[in-house]
Structure formats: C-alpha cells, structure tokens
Amino acid sequence: MWRYIVRRLLQTIPVILGATLLIYALVFLQPGDPIVALFGEKPVSDAVRAELEAQYNLDQPFLIQWLLFLKGALVGDFGVSYSGQPVSELIGRTLPVTFQLAFMAMIIEAILGVIAGFYAGMRRGKIFDSTMLVVSLTVIAIPIFVLGFGLQLIFGVQLQWVPPTVGSDTSFTNLILPAVVLGLVSFAYVLRLTRTSVIENLTADHVRTARAHGVSDSLVNRRHVLRNSLIPVVTFLGADLGTLMAGAVVTEGIFNINGIGNLAYQAILRGENPTVVSVVTVMVLIYVVASLLVDLLYAALDPRIRYA
C-alpha cells in the first residue's frame, strides 16, 4: 500500500515538472516584450524597466525563471501579476468558487448519468434506451456554449427560475444551472459508460449464478450488476475533474462567475503571463491529485486491485 502510494507520488513529480515547463515555455518563450504589453505604447524609462524585469525575473535565463517560479510555487507563492496583485490571492479568491461549481457538476453528472445509464442498459434496445442514446449523443454534439445559452435563455430569462448570471453571489441555488451546464457533456459520457458496463455485467457468469441461487432480480441488479458497473465510472469521474475545471472557462464566461476559469481566460487574453502559468499549474496539480485519489478509491472499490 505505502509502497504503491510512494511510487505513484514519485511518478507524479516528472509529470508536474514537465507540464509546468511546457506551459512556461508556451507562455514565456515568445517574441514580444511583456513590459511593453504592460505599459501599452507609453515609453518606459530604463530604470523602471530594469526594476520590473528584476521583479518578474525577466532578466534571468528562461530555465532559471521557471525554477524560481517552481521554488515560489512550492510554498504557495505564485508571485505578483503584472497588474500588481499577488497571484496566490487571485487564485485563493477564485478557486473555491470553481471547486464548488465543479463539485456540484460532478455530483449531478454522476447521479443522473449512473441512474439513466443503468436503466438504459437494463432496457437495452427499448424506447428509454434509444432515447437516452440520442440525448447523450446530442449533448456531446452540440457545443456546450450553445447549450449553456439555451438553458440560460429558458430558465434564466424566460422562466426566471434562476438568475441568468451569477456575478459575485455564488450561492448554491445560483450555481445550480451553471453546474448542470458544466456537467452536461460528462453526464453523456457517464451515461454511455454505465450503460455499456451494465450490459456487460448482465451476462456475467457470477450474475447468472446468483440468480440460480434464488436471488431476486431486483437484488441481483442492485448488488451484482450495478455495483460492479460502477468501477469504470469512478475511474472516469476522477479524470473528469480536470476536464470540468477547464470547461469552467466557458461556463463561467456564460454565467459571469468569478471563478478560476474566468481568471485564466482573462489572463490569457491580457497577456498576464504570471497568472496564466500559475493557474495552469494549479489545474495540473488538481488533476494529478484527483487521479491519485481515484486510483486509491479504485482499489477500495475493487478488492482485486493490489498495490503492486
């Protein structure tokens, strides 16, 4: 067990280093002068320039810049944005919002996806199954921002059940609609995955044997079919946290939520490089930690998995 955790942790180190280096290179290894971007067309005195370059480590070689960034990141210090705010403060303000949003989306997609997928698999080829397949494919086929706008229009503008935009009031009820939108695509995947898995398990030998022992259909379906079908779904959900965080870029834009997705997007558009690399680093960390947790959870769900 410990041996496994240690090995998995060791494996994540090159991933984190590589991913941050990759993003750092994409953001900073570009022609163009960030100082100019900062001041626009205004002339900058050499003294000010030197001071700024020192502040942002721009006078250092690229690799040193990256190492200095990592050194700071290790203690939670992501430096200061070009607009003068500490990046860790920006992240600290926006991350909880997105976390809440992504968490809600995940709960919604998991519960609805598993239920719909289970019944579709049980009634393979029947009306409910076909309907769910069409719904899931449609959800995947229509870009999420179109769906987002559509739902916003119906529930926010016309029915007025929820406020069309969220703004600074990130209460639970206000986030329901955005969470649904964020989770929609993953819902479709969870549904399809559960369905496939249920169909496979329905014909498993041990399921037939349980029936032969006199276990009732409903009990067999719950204890043996559904339970066994959940394992691949859990794996999917773990990897999905990263996708949801990235999807927040679009969803938060539609509903005007001050989350980390919006922060990332604005920072990219404005060339706020320190913010961009920091946010991406945080997202990579979340992804890595989530997959580690899922691996451990996977072992808890499936006793066959041994930490080797």
């Binding site: 590589g18 990235a246 990332a264 992804y287």
Partner: peptide, 22 residues
C-alpha cells in the same frame, strides 16, 4: 508514458487556449 502523462495532465481546452494565444 510519462510524456503522454505530461500532455494529458493539462486539460485539452485550456492547453489549446494557451497554445493558440502563443
């Protein structure tokens, strides 16, 4: 495998945004 992990660890949409802005 580690290389794939590195590229996989950055969510596709976000990575593409950063890449395109570069």
């Amino acid at each position: 495998s580690r290389g794939a992990d590195i590229f996989f660890a950055i969510p596709l949409l976000l990575a593409a945004i950063v890449g395109l802005s570069a």
